[in-house]
Amino acid sequence: MPNQIEPIIETGFIKTAGICLLIGALLATLAMTLHPNGGDIEYIVKIKSVLTFSHSVAIFCLPLIGFGFWGLSKILETKSKISTPAFFIFSFGLLAAMIAATINGLTLPNFASNFSANDNEISTIKKIIDYGKFINIPMAIIFIVATSLSVGLWAFLITQTSKLPKWIGYFGLSSGSADGILLGFLLLSCTLVFQSDPVPGLDQQ
């Protein structure tokens, strides 16, 4: 009886991970679409609600994407366990993305809205805001590098195993931009959601 139940649980887990990844990727697309360009303090205060909403959506989608890729790492797990460090690398990138989104979309607008353009300390305020922007730059770099490394490892594993269609792995290896990676997220999530067969056992690698 346990052997008959296990594939059903596995299939349910795969679909749940795929749904989370799909929702997370769609929310990330929405956040990127709504994300406005930077500006001075007056402009930041003017678009405070847009900044807050778009970055709140971005933060909300991170755990969904994280769970989706945790499911992917379990699917691609082999005796070498390469998929596990790939997931930890990706999680490190998600943490950096959360820090950047929190500072840029939640902290910065609220901080700027407490001051006016005529404030005597406006130059100091601008320096503080610039400091926050300089924090965001390395956070973005960490996220991009961590995502590229982890996606590259997962894509390589897909091409070396029979657990998912190999074309997804080749697509992941050839994706050289954020838009390409995001499209890969959407394609992968759809594959996981609509995959009907249980994932084969661990490959002997």
Rank of each mutant, 00 (worst) to 15 (best):
N3M: 10
I5C: 01
E6M: 13
E6V: 14
E6Q: 15
F13V: 09
F13W: 06
A17S: 14
A17F: 04
L26I: 15
A28Y: 14
L30Q: 09
L30G: 04
A31H: 11
T33W: 15
P36C: 09
N37M: 15
N37S: 14
N37L: 14
G38Q: 06
I41K: 10
E42Q: 13
I44K: 13
S49Q: 12
S49V: 12
V50E: 13
V50Y: 10
S54H: 04
S54L: 07
S56F: 10
V57N: 01
F60I: 13
C61E: 15
I65N: 04
I65S: 07
F69M: 12
F69R: 06
W70K: 13
L72G: 05
I75C: 03
E77M: 01
T78F: 06
I82A: 14
I82D: 13
T84P: 02
P85Q: 08
F88P: 04
S91C: 07
F92S: 13
G93E: 04
G93V: 02
L95W: 09
A101M: 09
T102D: 05
L108W: 01
L108H: 00
L108P: 00
F111T: 10
S113I: 11
S116Q: 11
N120A: 14
E121I: 11
T124M: 12
K126I: 14
I128P: 00
D130F: 12
D130A: 11
G132W: 04
G132V: 08
K133S: 08
F134S: 11
I135N: 06
I135D: 07
P138V: 03
M139A: 00
M139V: 04
A140T: 09
A140K: 00
I141Q: 08
I142Y: 02
F143T: 15
S148Y: 04
L149P: 02
A155F: 05
A155C: 07
Q160G: 03
K163Q: 05
W167R: 03
I168L: 15
G169W: 07
G172R: 00
G172E: 03
L173C: 00
L173R: 00
S174V: 11
G176F: 15
D179N: 10
D179W: 05
L183Q: 00
G184W: 15
L186Y: 10
L188A: 06
S189W: 10
L192P: 02
L192T: 06
L192K: 07
V193N: 08
V193Y: 02
F194G: 06
Q195L: 01
S196H: 07
S196Q: 08
V199L: 09
P200M: 04
Q204I: 06
